[in-house]
Write a protein that binds this DNA or RNA. Structure first.
Length: 108
DNA sequence: CATATGACACTAT
DNA sequence: AATAGTGCCATAT
């Protein structure tokens, strides 16, 4: 959620999404829904995707490690192809544009 | 304040 | 397995 005034130092929902994503280790993945639950907003999976899409810290926030709960790759600002390549470089198997979510999922 | 948007999730076909 | 419809929710306009 967006800060309402100058004294509100709490980070916004969007920023908290970026911070939480940083916690996902190399070689693991999480889902938009998992992140939403972790942040205390179980129904905000879609909003999580929006936040990552606006992430200005490409290279700092490993947003490529966030995939769909179904295992489908999901979106990526620089293109799904890049997202898949990045995952493969980390040892995450991607077959038919899907990952075995149960096998690589990082439990917060 | 009202609508629209989108890197989603879930259920039912 | 793949698709379609519905609900969701933070932001943008």
């Amino acid at each position: 959620m967006k800060p309402r005034n100058k004294l509100d130092n709490k980070i916004s929902f969007t920023e908290s999404v970026w911070e939480a994503t940083k916690l996902v280790p190399f070689g693991f993945v999480t889902s938009y829904g998992c992140l939403a639950r972790f942040l205390g907003r179980p129904g905000a999976s879609r909003a999580v995707g929006n936040a990552l899409n606006k992430n200005p810290y490409i290279g700092v926030v490993p947003c490529h490690r966030v995939v769909r709960s179904s295992g489908d790759i999901g979106g990526f600002a620089l293109g799904a192809k890049d997202k898949i390549e990045k995952l493969k470089k980390e040892g995450v198997e991607v077959r038919s544009n899907k990952v075995e979510i149960n096998k690589y999922l990082f439990n917060f």
